[in-house]
Amino acid sequence: MFAYCADPDTLSGFKWLSCYLTTGKHFGFYWSFLTVLTLLAVTAPAALALGFLGARAARSRHFALRGLGKTYIAIVRGVPDIVFFMFFVIALDQGFEWIRHQWLCPNWTEAIRQGNDFRVCPSAKLPLGNSPQWIHEVYGFFLAVITFAIVFGAFAANVLFGAMTAVPKAQLETAAAYGMSRKQTFWRILVPQMWVYAVPGLSNLWMILIKATPLLFLLGVEDIVYWARELGGSKQAKFTAYPHGDWRLWYFLVLLVFYLSFTKLSEWVLSRLMVRLRRGQATVGGSA
């Protein structure tokens, strides 16, 4: 990075550190913070939307829809995250490729499953075999968002389901007495009032989501924990210009600070949100 970094062996103290912290590898580390934050920013609304749909389905009057919603919640909540991330993602990826294969290569005669191998025609591959590495990374990221959204969506659905049930019946009956249709009651009475019951549960999910990002590396996305481990691991002079011992403790301390300040910030925002939601609502904690 800097001109004086050409020969790090001769440097010491701050100068050495400034070179060390600006290697290409460290920029990979800094970028991964952005990856994680982007993932959170995209996943949280997606999971919430999916949770909302799930909760609506689980409360539906139609038995098939209700069955679907309840099954989704029960299955996803019951399967360990790591299993989901190891197998579901590969299955999802293969599912996409299988659909594209049927669509793009109708004349393909070879079997797709050959023993353990999964082979679709080259033009059905996702991303295409010859696309640059960043497309592969974006695709991996996209798969990660879908998987996180499905997993956390199920938990959110359960929280929202409970929150919807917690809104006092009297409110809904009053709405009906005023002549509102079911749809109007849902959107004007139930949804605005359910958040105050949902936020504590959702905030838990948010906190867990923040800490779940190391699962990303299972999908080939290099997250902050991967880099901390890679950079902190001991390095021999043979293989690097910056040899050092086991520095993982320091890197993980940085992560600790990052995660703690991020959770602190989230807590602050969520408590403000809670105050705001309680305003004018008939709850124990709020002003009646």
């Binding site: 590898k25 920029f27 890679e230």
Partner: peptide, 18 residues
Amino acid sequence: EGAYPPWNFLNDAGEVDG
């Protein structure tokens, strides 16, 4: 794997080396 010198590892620039 990128974590097994001298076979394969990430160099200072973050590229696969070895």
